[in-house]
Amino acid sequence: MARKISMKDAINEALDQEMTRDPSVIVMGEDIVGGTGSPGEADAWGGVLGVTKGLYAKHGDRLMDTPLSESAYIGAAVGAAACGMRPVAELMFIDFMGVCLDEIFNQAAKFKYMFGGKAQTPVVIRAMVGAGFRAAAQHSQMLTPVFTHIPGLKVVCPSNAYDAKGLLIQSIRDNDPVIFCEHKNLYAHETEVPDEPYAIPFAEANVVREGGDVTIVAYGLMVHRATEAADRLAREGVECEVVDLRTLSPIDMDAVLESVEGTGRLVCVDEASPRCSIAADVSAQVAQHAFKALKGPVQMVTPPHTPVPFSPALEDLYIPSAERVMEAVRATMVA
């Protein structure tokens, strides 16, 4: 594999290849083309951060700008999915879920069960997540636990370009509704990505670093904090195993438990608010299923239970750092 591309380009390529492969794949969202109906150039934006740039030129009207009406177009995506299409709807920021949540958690998530198995809703809702952009309280949240809480939804949060492409292709091919969370601070991050289409199965965590002393579980941007901490700790003689969950619902608890059985120590790193977070869920499941393997207290590294602050001075304190992960690792080794 020679080619390195950014996560943004990997997402673009996944959409492009799936739209080429399957005519039922359509893409909609606010400004995902950009400039529709405006006097200037068509395809002006390709999304607010340019993720869908260039797709309109290839796939034309299968990419649709929408009015600023999240309820209507997310609902339309859900409805079209129930009628045999494979829509990918971009919600821009996950913080906007509040204005269209019903169509996701009462409609898309429940059709299959509520209708006795007769419906399927293969919709993908893409949204930017995460802090670090100086974007303040309403454009920076990591709302993954809101969605993992809801049966019927799948929740995906890649940590790199390779995973983003394979997981998005899987999300589009998957027959259940998927919330696809893209960390905006990873868009520029580059990894080796095959140019061919490929799908990464859900519930297949990635052990990104092997180590026998402490298990660190993370997802999204926090995988990079965890590996940075692990690299630095290795110089102190502490070998950490870093497990990238990749998908949060379904979640690969087998991989976590297998790792904890080997290390006996667990640190969960999560950019979501601490209460009822992914970190709390993983900690609870490990306590339930691998209590005897634990040699020390489980540690969680999360932001404080506050909204995301604006001032860089505060936001940098808010986001879990490698140093905090290192402290947590050491704390597991006290007992």
């Binding site: 594999m1 390779y162 394979g166 095959p194 061919e196 289409p197 490929y198 799908a199 990464i200 199965p201 990635n206 052990v207 092997e210």
Partner: peptide, 16 residues
């Protein structure tokens, strides 16, 4: 190694 298995998985995931 972990990477050897990962490389094989990456290959096996490719369409076709």
């Amino acid at each position: 190694t972990r990477q050897l298995v990962e490389d094989l998985l990456r290959y096996k995931r490719i369409d076709g």
